[in-house]
């Protein structure tokens, strides 16, 4: 019996087939596999993994020169001066260094390409006649983008922890408030910080997905999202815009450092998560409304 006959036998006469209950997970699994098997995704993750390595090596070279304390002061909080005492601080430094640009840029590429890239390649029409369903496809795309946020953040954190352990001593550490905590608790806080950083990217992800539903060009969607990101980052630095800055998705990003206080200072952390939820709600709905009504002509 040929395989073609197998197909014909499996229900050529039955009418509408039943929806298999695990289908949504099948679609999500396929989406995750497709995303994480792309060279582009792997290249983005490789760039992110390289940042802590470069920072670690730079700090190592500078201190072995005997120059003492590092100058400049990296991204915001003064974690960088502590790296030589404790490799775990490389995790915080690396996250602080990648959060303003590298991480959201990577998210912008993935989110911007989510719908527009499929439209560009024409694969969107075949997914929709499969039929994946517009809402479900959009949700799957958003879930995959969020999964990428988490993976990207963890890649930075794990790479930083590895480099930190290799180049510097590990041990108990001093919080920003000056109290001592054990290395185990430090690790726990590092994980918590990684999760908060990943959550900080939810807003950009929703924004990128919305932009992605507006165009049939993946490149245009990626460029627009990254452009918006840079614009917002610049506007956030202009003192005259003080009144609207709290509504920028990036305004409270560096609040994750508050997790290193003792006790933890929650105020801005909560504000950050609130802003991210707001962006997810607003741009998620906009993306959905747009995608449901969109003519798929590509």
């Amino acid at each position: 019996m040929s395989q073609a006959e197998v197909v014909r036998r499996t229900g050529a006469t039955e009418g509408a087939r039943k929806t298999s209950p695990l289908w949504t997970f099948g679609l999500l699994r396929s989406e995750l596999l497709t995303t994480f098997r792309r060279w582009r995704t792997l290249a983005l993750l490789a760039v992110l993994a390289a940042v802590p390595i470069l920072v670690g090596i730079a700090v190592k070279i500078e201190t072995s020169d005997g120059a003492g304390g590092p100058g400049g002061g990296g991204g915001g909080p003064a974690f960088i001066s502590q790296i030589t005492n404790n490799g775990l601080f490389l995790v915080f430094t690396a996250l602080a260094a990648t959060l303003p640009f590298f991480l959201p840029m990577a998210i912008g590429v993935i989110a911007g390409d989510a719908i527009a890239g499929e439209a560009n390649a024409g694969t969107l029409r075949y997914l929709l006649v499969a039929p994946a369903g517009r809402s479900r496809l959009l949700l799957t795309k958003y879930a995959t983008t969020m999964a990428f946020c988490l993976v990207a953040t963890l890649v930075v954190a794990v790479s930083a922890l590895t480099v930190g352990a290799l180049l510097f001593p590990l041990g108990d550490l001093t919080t920003i408030s000056g109290t001592r905590i054990s290395f185990a608790e430090g690790l726990l806080r590092a994980l918590l910080i990684a999760l908060v950083v990943a959550a900080s990217l939810i807003g950009v992800a929703a924004l990128g997905l919305f932009v992605s539903t507006l165009t049939n060009s993946g490149i245009a969607a990626m460029a627009t999202t990254v452009g918006l990101l840079i614009t917002v980052q610049i506007l956030d630095q202009i003192p005259q815009l003080h009144a609207i800055q709290p509504y920028f998705f990036s305004h409270y990003w560096l609040s994750f450092a508050d997790l290193m206080r003792d006790p933890v200072y929650w105020d801005e952390l909560v504000k950050n998560l609130g802003i991210q939820a707001l962006y997810a709600g607003a741009f998620g709905s906009a993306a959905w409304a747009r995608f449901m009504a969109k003519d798929i002509t590509a």
Binding site: V6, W23, P131, A132
Partner: peptide, 21 residues
């Protein structure tokens, strides 16, 4: 395999066989 995963009525257990066919 990807297009088949997008079909809600496609049985994942027979997916490989159907794709081969």
């Amino acid at each position: 395999l990807r297009y088949d995963a997008a079909d809600p009525t496609a049985d994942p257990r027979t997916r490989r066989t159907r794709v081969a066919a």
